[in-house]
């Protein structure tokens, strides 16, 4: 199964995303995935920090449920973005490879996992 993810490719140096270019998205589509990518990372980081600090927030069922719901919703939207755009633009996929996006160039790469 092809894993879909936006790697940390927000760099000007194209060679950083050294996979094969399989497509490109519009600026608006790039903005959507960038927001989701940052939100996903932020939430994951938040949960990790709270867990490491053994924070009371995670023991509070109300907050715990809110965080779980938010993480779930963000990851679902994130995956949907990749599925929808891959279908719309017919991006090539290969077993053992994943898609990545360069936020500067809007190019989508296929790179070995």
């Amino acid at each position: 199964m092809v894993k879909q993810q936006a790697g940390d490719c927000a760099r000007q140096n194209q060679s950083y995303c050294d996979g094969k270019i399989v497509g490109k998205v519009s600026y608006e589509e790039r903005d959507e995935i960038q927001v989701l990518f940052e939100r996903k990372n932020g939430l994951v980081e938040l949960v990790r920090s709270l867990a490491e600090a053994d924070d009371e927030v995670l023991r509070n069922s109300h907050f715990y449920e809110r965080i779980v719901a938010d993480v779930g919703k963000t990851i679902t939207s994130y995956q949907q973005w990749w599925s929808e755009n891959a279908r719309r633009y017919g991006w090539e996929k290969t077993e053992g490879y994943q898609w990545e996006i360069n936020f500067d160039t809007c190019q989508v790469f296929l790179r070995k996992q």
Binding site: Y27, Y89, C106
Partner: peptide, 10 residues
């Protein structure tokens, strides 16, 4: 304007 369909291999 942009046309992401241009970069498709479809």
């Amino acid at each position: 304007y942009q046309n992401p369909h241009f970069y498709s291999t479809r």
